[in-house]
Design a protein around this nucleic acid. Structure first.
Length: 569
RNA sequence: CGGGGUGUAGCGCAGCCUGGUAGCGCAUCGGCUUUGGGAGCCGAGGGCCGGAGGUUCGAAUCCUCUCACCCCGACCA
């Protein structure tokens, strides 16, 4: 492709609105342009990269036995009412009506559509197992789209749906997809990690997320430094520490102390000169409309997913301040377990505190030297908090947990009969009995992979594409397009490389050398080849890897063979 | 959704406080010179100052409303 005839609007300056590296570089390198909040046009170069990812995904899906289809982006609301998600899905679902006032949505996912297809077309167990996938534009009306392509509202996604007669069949389908995902991310040249993920309210089923490791990732993942245990923060657990025998310790008498104006755990700790880990943090949450007081060590973070699971409700939320005050009889900030009428649930770590501080359920007052059982009954226990780095691994004897930042690029999920039940996806089994199918779903953020790859592969000068995703293998710089000899040699090399099947971007623009070098670095093709100037006078071309230290000189006559070899063709 | 910020030429910004009809750098176009890491000089084009309403002789500037975009938060009370 010729640079001079392609829209590659590189930017010299950093766009002020772009916060993360991938967003900045995608704009600067002319891969994308914004149209609105969280929606982007893919320009020629960016589209080439997107297509590379798509091709890898498609190949591996096909190899894994999945069948490609393309479902409508616009879906009837009726179908979503049938599955019950029309009410559940909330504002992320972009809804609209057609001219007949019928309700529609722009598909954020396609469980309903594929289920509808399968219930109409698949009648017999002999047609199973089946796995259908598509690569489609989705729209999710995110509360706050940000970070460019990383978290846009409109994005390109591969989604696959497997259908099996039973759970054993689903297990096979799931493992097949899991393996295909590992190959996909390996081929994309990404450092990634598969982690156990929370399954939310569906229950029973298992789920894994695939994260590209990057400091800018929005998600926290936890992994063991010894074994292969890895989970996302919502799901991750640590091995519980031994609980001390709290009854044996001599604790001073419990005492009510004034803590005027001390609102946070840190402030109370400093004011009373107690370490935060010996203050019990009391959090009022709403679980299925009921108030529950959750107790955590002062230095720990509440994990709301774990809390919901422990309470057996779909989710817990933080109540409105007025409502909370009504329930607790006191403003939040002074809550505590002593004498509370509320249901109390404590993190399993909390009983280890033999002598602690907690709120006194009166504004501006706390208790100190509280002891379990002596002063307050020990409440029900559960794992309620996020793990922290350095804790012991729940799976192996010696491992310690580490925390990393990750970008979620893939998610595999055993759905079970959640949709097949509500939508009536059934076939006849070998006995002639009707069976509800067991489903799995498998997503990959195709466009997000492009951004994630840049997060992982860049330097001060621009993108450093992994070979498999690069828009071109070679950036061929025609240093002086007014020098007929150089042009002739460069054009010939360009033609020969194309003929050999190598993807080349020929920078034939009438620009100064410096501009071409800067743009080549920004665009990040794996190899940069210079034809012209000093080396050309000696019959040489220069070859430099994007991530290499210095250029190598190759005789013009050998350039083609060398480049074909280096480009891996 | 709550809070904060910004909207002026393709991009980055100044001008606004203290009203007088718009400017700088880069980019673009023409010319000359230059030519190995984002060139120099000369010249040119391009903006109903996000939109609507109001105040005023006069509004980019003051007031009201509105829209868009960005940031922070939406578990630590």
């Amino acid at each position: 492709m010729r640079f001079s005839q392609t829209l590659i609007p590189t930017l010299r300056e950093d766009p002020v609105d772009a916060q993360v590296v991938s967003h900045r570089l995608m704009l600067r390198a002319g891969l994308i342009r914004p149209l609105g909040a969280g929606i982007y046009t893919w320009l020629p170069l960016g589209l080439r990269v997107l297509r590379k990812v798509e091709a890898i995904v498609r190949q591996e899906m096909d190899n894994a036995g999945a069948q490609e289809v393309l479902m409508p982006a616009v879906q009837p609301g009726e179908l979503w009412q049938e599955s019950g998600r029309w009410e559940q899905y909330g504002k992320e679902l972009l809804r609209f009506v057609d001219r007949h006032d019928r309700q529609f949505c722009f598909g954020p996912t396609h469980e309903e559509v594929i289920s509808d297809l399968v219930r109409r077309e698949i009648r017999s167990y002999r047609q199973l197992p089946a796995n259908f996938y598509q690569i489609q534009t989705k729209f999710r009306d995110e509360i706050r789209p940000r970070f460019g392509i990383m978290r846009g509202r409109e994005f390109l996604m591969k989604d696959a749906y497997s259908f099996d007669l039973d759970w054993a069949g689903l297990e096979v389908s799931y493992q097949t997809m899991f393996a295909a995902y590992q190959r996909i991310f390996q081929r994309c040249g990404l450092a990634f990690r598969a982690v156990e993920a929370d399954t939310g309210s569906i229950g029973g089923a298992s789920s894994h997320e695939f994260h590209v490791l990057a400091d800018s990732g929005e998600d926290v993942i936890v992994s063991c430094d010894q074994c292969d245990y890895a989970a996302n923060l919502e799901k991750a657990v640590s091995r519980p520490a031994e609980i001390a025998d709290t009854g044996a310790v001599a604790v001073p008498a419990v005492e009510r102390v004034a803590t005027p104006g001390q609102k946070s755990i840190e402030a109370v700790g400093q004011f009373l000169r107690w370490p935060v880990e010996r203050i019990v943090k009391s959090l009022l949450v709403e679980a299925a409309g009921e108030p529950v007081l959750l107790l955590l060590r002062g230095d720990r973070e509440l994990n709301m997913v774990k809390a919901a699971a422990a309470l057996g409700v779909p989710q817990v939320t933080i109540p409105e301040p007025e409502r909370a005050a009504q329930w607790a009889g006191v403003a939040m900030g002074s809550l505590g377990p002593l004498g509370t009428p509320l249901r109390v649930l404590a993190d399993r770590e909390v009983p280890a505190l033999a002598d602690f501080v907690c709120g006194a359920n009166t504004e501006g007052w706390h208790w100190q030297h509280v002891q379990w059982e002596r002063d307050v009954p020990l409440p029900a226990l559960a794992d309620l908090r996020n793990v922290v780095a350095g804790e012991p691994c729940p799976r192996c004897a010696t491992g310690r947990l580490q925390r990393h930042q990750g970008i979620e690029v893939g998610h595999v999920f055993k759905l079970g009969d959640k949709y097949s039940q509500s939508l009536g996806v059934r076939v006849l089994d070998s006995q002639g009995l009707e069976q509800t199918l067991v489903m799995g779903c498998y997503g990959i953020g195709v466009s997000r992979i492009v951004a994630a790859a840049i997060e992982q592969h860049h330097d001060q000068n621009g993108i450093c594409w992994p070979v498999a995703l690069a828009p071109f293998q070679i950036a061929l710089l025609l240093l002086n397009p007014r020098e007929p000899g150089e042009v002739e040699a460069g054009e010939a090399l360009y033609r020969d490389l194309l003929a050999a099947g190598v993807e080349v971007l020929l920078d034939d623009r009438d620009e100064r050398a410096g501009v071409k070098f800067k743009d080549a670095d920004l665009l990040g093709c794996p190899l940069r080849v210079v034809v012209g100037g000093r080396s050309f006078k000696e019959g040489m071309v220069e070859v430099q890897a994007r991530t290499g230290e210095r250029a190598e000189r190759v005789p013009l006559a050998e350039a083609l063979a060398t480049l074909v070899r280096l480009a891996g063709r």
